[in-house]
Write a protein that binds this DNA or RNA. Structure first.
Length: 518
DNA sequence: ACGTGGTGCGACTTACACAA
DNA sequence: TTGTGTAAGTCGCACCACGT
């Protein structure tokens, strides 16, 4: 749009006695303002906004402005979105009578223009005087969670209130249909997608985004932990890829002192591994007798040392039988160093930071399993040609804290990642780095300035695309191996043993199996 | 289980040419 | 000059595959 047009517009304003009324007359007269984007109306309106800034007229007479405001509201409900801000500013709607504005918005709402009502409310900052539940429900049904986020974005009280409402929707006895029924006729309403699963996802997003106390949403938290329990049982008894020890550890930290979860755990135990094991766990927490399924209570006082031993040896045999079929690093055990002091670590760094060095990098952390917050790296592995270093990160960082040398690790990592003459080798390294950033806030921007990094995940993808003849010749049965393990199987003949992948990497001392896996 | 990063598809804008 | 219709570009979302 030419400068000419703008000048012409301005001349027009100067000629009018009351430009504000003039603009309204213009907008009203052309009834169909379907012109999206940069229409003439938009240009004129935004020019007027600038013009007013340059020619601050004295305060308008109150009554006259009120009349104009009444008229502009009629336009607001029809005009394109990009006119909203200029119009609100020009006619100073934020100074208008709130009750009047609220009434107008509620009119929009009753018309079924829920989105428009919400947008206008946000622009006019009307949220504190509105009912969060009423305003947000139709938006949520229309899958507009983002808008809901924005709607409560600046009001912590509304955030808490909204989260509490969402949590009550997740109560076991609550019927979500009660919420959706009034809005049945809603366009693109996805009532069937509106279940507890998506709700709890939303709740966690909001909890994270607004830093609200998770205790406000007990139902959602409980359900999340229950899902974790189900998953752990699946891993242990269906997929059979988790050892008794790792499984028990995760069960323990998921259930904790929560009676409700303890009850569910007992039921799962009865189903998957019999009443004796269930009774043992029930005893362990002192679960009240009336919470137990009938028939289980009698087994409580039973001595259980014998079964325990039995079970552990069974697990051991199960381990041994499988172990030989997996690939193992051809590095003698004495060249695998677990580093727990800075003195040893500095020696390791000296070897790693050689020009031209090639170093393999990987990290381990405790699986999140529904815990809030991002995981912290518990072990940092680095390998050169025939030596492996395992850095006990929690311990080293703690020591550095005491000695006031917090920058030690970040400085090393920066140097390592930015040096193009040192090749960093890994598999799916972006995940490692993001966990590392959560562990050590000084390393947030390491990702941007990295040189000499080779990620075998991407290499694998490219090579795999060129030579697809591997896959279906060997056997009709699909290989369960995937990811790095599959790659190792292709290149080195045998897959990897991933049993320790989901173990508790924060627990010390590390078990020998964990060290070998690392 | 969760978190992340990449991918593909559809919805939604934006840009532009053209007819009225 | 305006509004319309089509083409191109963005954005967002669901999905998958992988990590712990």
């Amino acid at each position: 749009v030419s400068r000419q047009l703008k000048e012409e517009i301005r001349r027009g304003f100067a000629g009018l006695e009351d430009p504000l009324a003039g603009l309204l007359a213009m907008l009203e007269s052309s009834s169909d303002w379907k012109g999206k984007g940069h229409s003439l109306g938009y240009y004129i309106t935004s020019e007027l906004q600038l013009w007013i800034k340059e020619h601050p007229a004295g305060p308008q007479s109150g009554i006259q402005l009120k009349k104009l405001q009444a008229r502009v509201l009629g336009i607001l409900s029809q005009c394109p979105a990009n006119l909203l801000d200029p119009l609100i500013s020009i006619y100073q709607l934020h100074t208008a009578d709130r009750n009047y504005l609220l009434e107008h918005v509620s009119h929009l709402y009753l018309k079924g223009s829920y989105k428009e009502a919400a947008i206008l409310s946000m622009k006019l900052k009307l949220q504190p005087d509105q009912d969060v539940e009423k305003m947000c429900t139709p938006l949520l049904l229309q899958d507009k969670a983002n808008m809901v986020e924005d709607y409560v974005g600046e009001y912590p009280e509304l955030q808490s209130k909204l989260l509490q409402i969402l949590d009550t929707w997740c109560e076991p006895s609550f019927n979500i249909r009660d919420i959706t029924r009034p809005y049945q006729g809603l366009s693109r309403c996805k009532a069937e997608k509106f279940n507890r699963r998506t709700l709890s996802k939303l709740v966690f997003r909001l909890l994270d985004r607004f830093n609200v106390d998770p205790a406000l949403c007990p139902n959602v938290i409980n359900q999340r932990h229950l899902r974790t329990l189900n998953y752990l049982f699946y891993k242990r008894f269906v997929e059979k890829t988790m050892t008794e020890e790792n499984w028990a550890d995760h069960i323990q930290s998921t259930v904790g002192e929560n009676r409700w979860l303890q009850g569910h755990l007992i039921q799962l135990l009865v189903r998957h591994c019999g009443e004796r094991a269930a009774a043992r766990w029930a005893r362990h927490w002192g679960v009240p007798v009336d919470m137990l399924p009938p028939g289980l209570a009698e087994q409580l006082p039973e001595p259980h040392t014998q079964e325990r031993i039995e079970e552990v040896t069974k697990a051991d045999n199960y381990e041994d039988s499988k172990k030989k079929d997996y690939y193992q690093l051809p590095i003698p055990r004495e060249n695998i160093h677990l580093l727990q002091t800075w003195e040893e670590t500095l020696q390791c760094w000296e070897k790693v930071l050689q020009p031209g060095q090639v170093v393999g990098i990987d990290m381990e952390w405790k699986p999140s399993f529904g815990m809030v917050g991002k995981p912290r790296v518990a072990l940092l592995q680095m390998a050169v040609k025939d030596e492996v270093f395992l850095l006990d990160l929690p311990r080293l960082l703690e020591q550095a804290e005491v000695e006031g040398e917090k920058e030690k690790l970040p400085r090393f990592m920066q140097k390592l990642y930015s040096d193009a003459d040192i090749t960093k080798l890994g598999y799916g390294m972006s995940g490692d780095l993001s966990s590392l950033a959560a562990t050590c806030s000084a390393l947030k921007d390491t990702e941007k300035q990295q040189h000499g990094v080779v990620d075998l995940l991407t290499v694998d993808k490219q090579v795999d695309g060129l030579s697809p003849e591997h896959s279906h010749e060997e056997r009709g049965a699909r290989q369960p191996e995937k990811g790095l393990s599959l790659l190792v199987q292709h290149v080195l003949g045998k897959p990897l043993d991933k049993t320790e992948q989901l173990s508790n990497w924060e627990k010390r001392p590390l078990r020998e199996e964990q060290i070998l896996y690392a």
